[in-house]
Every structure is written in C-alpha cells, then in structure tokens.
C-alpha cells in the first residue's frame, strides 16, 4: 500500500451477507450515538460525550480483523470501537447513564468504557496515554509466548504527544505485536493537523521508527477491513508492530460543547457526501446486494437493540453511595 494515495476497494465485489454485517455494525454505532446525543440533551447522559459519527468504518473495519483473544486499547471517543468489539449496547448505555449495570459500573462514563470479556482496556481520556499500555500488553503476550495482537486506537492529536513517539520506538525496538490504528479525523479537538504537525504525512513518522505502515481511506469500511486484516496478519505472523492511518472525518462536534468555529460547514458537508454508511448503501444497491426492504429490516433491528439498551439503562440501578470507595484497591478474599 502506498501512503501517498490511500488504497481503496470501492470497485470490488463483496459477499452479500458479509456486506450486510458490516452495514449493520455501522448502523448500530450511528444510531446508538444519535440516540446518545438525544439523551444528552435530555440530561440522561452527562459529562463529556464525544461522538464518532462519520468514523464508523474505522471501528468496524478494524474490529472485523481482530480475534476474540486479541486486546483493544481505545480513546475517549470509543463507543464505536466498543460496540464493534462486541460490548453490548446495553452495558455501554447503562455506563453512560452512570448505572451500576454499566460495563464500568458507572464509574467511568462515556470516556471510560472497559470490558474484561472482550479485553477492552478503555476508554482512555488522556490523549496518547493508551499507547504505552498497548506496548506493555503486547510485551506480556510476547513474554508468555501467546500469539495475540494488541490493537491500539488513537487520534491524530496523539501524534504530537511524546507517548506516541516513545511507544512507537519501544514497539519497534522490542518487536512487539501492536497494531497501531490512527483515526486521523484531521482535527485534534479544534486544531487542524497542519497547524499541529511540521510533517503531516503520518505514515512517514511511523516509518521513521522502522514500523511497517500504510494509510487507507477511512471512510470506506471494505477498504479499512482489507487493510486491517492484512496488517493484523503481519503483526501476528511477524510479531512486529504495524501502523495504519485511517483517513476519516468526524461529522459532529468534538464534544457537546463545541460551536465548531475552526472548520466550515461546507467542509463538513463535503465529507458527509463520502459518509461510510451512505456510500456503502449506495454501492451495495448499485451492485444489487441490498434492497430497500433489507435496509429497512436492518434499521428496525438496530432500532430494537437501541430501544432495549435505553430501557436497560433506564431500569438500571444506582450503586449505593456506601460503595463509593470500592475499587480503589482490589478486594481480597
């Protein structure tokens, strides 16, 4: 793959059932987050809420490439990664409600989704702080002779952090099976990449650490999936890190407190035309792989799941205040 012109599979034929699965996953994320935004305005969800609407293809395409035993480290914009990884919408919604049935018992909220069953290590809200963790998880796998991959999501903003550079160096130096996935949505909060980086070609940065690296069109789920599978194969087989830059775009504001002064509406509209869901739907319809009825069925299935998730969160319970100081230290016995 060539960094200068991200590869794309937009013309390729795909398996009907698999394409429906990918579309379903992206729709789950999209509708889940739209519902989250609505619930935020109703004050059911509080704190910071960062939506990944527009970036669904990255979460879905990458998680398709992972095995159940692999690990995932994500950022504070992680609902999509968590859903695609297999954490239930109910557990995530309950978490955002702050209920003890949430995946982090309501102690983390939107930014700190955790799940041991899927080896989902957050939900990390200090930009860049997840990368060293991924290095360590991979080190543990290597030391214990396991062929697992640790997938580490981070945004373009993290590239400016020292922890990115330290982690790239360590992963390459120690030959660790880390799959670094940069969700490059062009803005670190409100700071455009070219205003933050002297070198904006992120693949070159990874390559400078002697890490195999490539960039893909992060708006195309099939492209992301193919690139991720190839990358994960390399990581697992070679026991070496890989850096994949997914060029994507956040359609919504950075958080719920963002008037978006730093970018134009025209720019957002231009990217929306390339949205991962509309383009996949259009392509599948054109190829005769998706009917209106099937799309409607998928939407209904997703709507039911989200309805159930909201009901689960609504019916969830508050952890007793007496339990406030639990989980500061491990409970023994």
């Amino acid at each position: 793959m060539n960094a200068k012109s991200p590869s794309s599979l937009s013309g390729a034929q795909v398996d009907r059932e698999h394409a429906h699965h990918l579309l379903h996953q992206m729709l789950r994320i999209r509708r889940f987050e739209e519902k989250s935004a609505e619930l935020y305005t109703l004050m059911k969800i509080r704190g910071f809420l960062h939506l990944c609407i527009g970036e669904e293809a990255v979460a879905v395409g990458v998680c398709e490439a992972l095995e159940p035993e692999d690990g995932v480290v994500a950022t504070y914009r992680e609902h999509g990664n968590a859903l695609a990884r297999g954490i239930s919408a109910s557990a995530i919604m309950a978490e955002m409600y702050g209920k003890q049935e949430g995946c982090s018992r309501g102690r983390g909220g939107s930014m700190h989704i955790f799940d041991d069953k899927t080896r989902f290590y957050g939900g990390n809200a200090i930009v860049g702080c997840g990368l060293p963790l991924a290095v360590g998880l991979a080190l543990a796998d290597k030391m214990q002779g396991r062929k697992r991959v640790t997938c580490c999501f981070f945004g373009d903003g993290a590239i400016a952090e020292g922890e990115f550079h330290e982690s790239m160096n360590l992963a390459a130096l120690w030959h660790l099976p880390v799959f670094f996935v940069c969700e490059n949505n062009l803005y670190a909060m409100g700071t455009a990449l070219e205003r933050a980086q002297s070198v904006t070609d992120l693949v070159r940065k990874a390559a400078s650490y002697n890490i195999a690296s490539s960039a893909v069109d992060g708006m195309d789920v099939l492209t992301v999936e193919a690139a991720a599978k190839e990358a994960v194969n390399i990581v697992r087989r070679e026991q070496e890190p890989y850096f994949l830059e997914c060029r994507t775009y956040r359609f919504r504001a950075h958080s719920m407190f963002d008037p978006e002064l730093y970018r134009s509406k025209a720019e957002v509209e231009k990217w929306k035309k390339r949205g991962p869901i509309v383009t996949l739907v259009k392509r599948l319809k054109k190829q005769g792989l998706l009917s209106d009825v099937e799309l409607e069925q998928l939407e209904q299935q997703v709507a039911r799941e989200i309805e159930e998730a909201v009901a689960f969160a609504e019916n969830g319970t508050w952890e007793p205040v007496e339990d406030l100081t639990r989980f500061v230290y491990s409970e023994r016995g």
């Binding site: 690990g71 360590g136 543990a140 030391m143 360590l170």
Partner: peptide, 26 residues
C-alpha cells in the same frame, strides 16, 4: 536480557509498558 530489560530514556513509555504488562498477566 528477557527478564532484565534495558529501556530507552522513555519514562512514560516504559512505565506505561509496565502497566500494560501487568494488565497482561506479568
């Protein structure tokens, strides 16, 4: 060298790697 590991001057990186390794069962 697999159990006595020299690191580069990357306090944040190798301390975080220690945390990750602990999470990974070491």
């Amino acid at each position: 060298p697999e159990r006595i590991i020299d690191t580069p001057l990357s306090e944040s990186g190798f301390t975080g790697a220690g945390i990750g390794a602990a999470l990974g069962g070491m």
